[in-house]
Write a protein that binds this DNA or RNA. Sequence first.
DNA 1: GGGCGTGTCAAACATCTGTTTGAAATAGGT
DNA 2: ACCTATTTCAAACAGATGTTTGACACGCCC
Lengths: 229, 229
Amino acid sequence: MKTAAKPRRRAAPRHPAHDAGTRDRILEAAGEVFAAEGFRRATVREICARAKVNIAAINYHFGDKYELYREVFSHFARAGIEQYPVTFDPGGKPEPQLRAFCRNFTRRLLDPGRPAWHGRLIAREMVEPTPLLDEIVKSFMRPQWETILRIVAANVGAPPGSELARRCATSLIGQMLFQHNCRAVIDRVQPGQEYTPEENDRRAAFVAEFSLAALRALRGAAKRKAVAR
Amino acid sequence: MKTAAKPRRRAAPRHPAHDAGTRDRILEAAGEVFAAEGFRRATVREICARAKVNIAAINYHFGDKYELYREVFSHFARAGIEQYPVTFDPGGKPEPQLRAFCRNFTRRLLDPGRPAWHGRLIAREMVEPTPLLDEIVKSFMRPQWETILRIVAANVGAPPGSELARRCATSLIGQMLFQHNCRAVIDRVQPGQEYTPEENDRRAAFVAEFSLAALRALRGAAKRKAVAR
DNA sequence: GGGCGTGTCAAACATCTGTTTGAAATAGGT
DNA sequence: ACCTATTTCAAACAGATGTTTGACACGCCC
């Protein structure tokens, strides 16, 4: 199974008739399967079965599995970003923005349904990287990272590029990603976990409070350090 | 590729001559490859090449790939647990114990070298579960989880089984696991990351301080809540 | 109706992966 | 040296997976 490098037949050009059927069904099915299984474990047979199309359709419409994977990312990015925006307003208050960030970030990972597929695709790609990772870092992750750094920096009172802000942002994101990426384990050591939207929001709220408490204290500590000097 | 359920030839019984060669070389190679690649992506061909043995040797000595995987876990558990102990002493101070936990947990994920393979095997199994997960949860993860809960509970001043302790423990672990599991992304959005033992300890120390600050604050909040009532 | 382009299909193909097989080599004991 | 058990080996095998192929169907335009 070669993921890249081999010259491929060009995927069929987009055509008005295309958007009414097979191609879209494949994208939908692939979005769901890739988000749940990741690139490697997802099979074209499962995607085609789910989409009720012939197995050669992926090659006809997308060229190959890898290009389908790439298309899935761009196809679902918009919905995911709109539904779960992560933004920073320099004129706004830092704490509510961090809370909003936690809520949206957690939702994009744990929410049931289609808009969360993008978030889950990203999360999977993070733990099982494919050759597409570099593109995704450039187009999505790095800009998001910069935004998160700003949110965190505003709360901890350090420049966004500082080591303090970076470490805090790492700690913040890790808490939420853990709840998605290691869910199989969490559910086993903590039986009875629920994943309703309300419970997911409670998770997000806790991460926000835990982290805000830490950021406040670290902000205080940095201030005392500056005064002492 | 069937990971389980098929009746398998019994692996060769252990024999004095065994421990001097092929079998051990396979275990070493497999420990390294499984820790780096996970079960699914690791191939018996790579393991055998690394161990300089014939490809049929895995089946002869271990039965099949999956049994080898299981053996690798038990084989490396002892070294990992000894090198990176996670324990709780009820008579000891809570904060130094949490710091020690962070240090050892982070080291078991990020340290170079063999003793960290067990930790990395566990981390990989968490994000890409195999049918072995239930066994590992029972033999290793759940006991560890209970210990971590105790450490956290002592710091936050709540019972180990409480929701507060559980959420805090989740937040604590997530920070460290993120640094290992999503390392490919971290290295791309934060170029220049170093993974020397010293730098790893600095990471651990930061997670400890971040989390202790949060725990102190949450402890205070819980106390004020109790008083108010 | 014919020609051309597009889309679909079943079968075949190519590759990879884990496993099996039977012969040969090796090790250990008498 | 001989016998038996164990170990190793190369080749073959079986199954899974992604891709290709060529025929056919369909739609559109002249």
